[in-house]
Amino acid sequence: MTYSNSVDRVVSLLLDAGYRRLNSPFSLAGLLFNVAAVMVGADRGSDLVIVEDTVASASREIQTRIETIGRAMDALDSKRPITAVLIGPRPSAAELDAMSRVARILPVGISSLTDQDDVLRNWLAVLLPLQLPPTGHQLADPLSEIMNQVGSEDPVISRLLSSAPLGTSSVQKALHQIIELDLVIPEKRGAN
């Protein structure tokens, strides 16, 4: 999927992660904020995500807007954490510092990079759900895999594998016993 601009890509990633997009401009405590995009976390996530494009708005404006939103949320006694995703050239350190007092700032950078999608994903990762590996008791079941791959038709293999869970010495003992059995020579005919 390709997007015409980075804002859309951010919105798309967050929508995929279960975020809900609000209309922009949106009002807060009677104030109207015209941001590039605004999203809220659904279900157990309560994050408010503001997406801004430093190319579309001057970074000074953006700083003011974020600070105002922060203050408005405070005034409304909202506990929602605020995250600002800044697309485009990174604002000055002072501006970023000022903004980060009221919100989590994710300066994802300029949009012309070839690995744009990965970079975006990395920056937004903190907002995205965490995929955990399957958790059983173990991450793998080697013995079953061995049995599946090697097969257990050969009686030698079958005996060796069945002794494996009991430990090294058990496998070793089984091997020795099989070899000893192989070496048993049938009684000579007419030996009496």
Binding site: Q138, L139, S170, Q172, H176
Partner: peptide, 29 residues
Amino acid sequence: LLGLDVIEFIVEGLHDAGDVRRVRNAVPA
């Protein structure tokens, strides 16, 4: 985590098979 013990049991248990000299030592027959 990976349950590799069982693999080591097998590999170490079959160590003797890797060299006929070890087989000679382990199985006098």
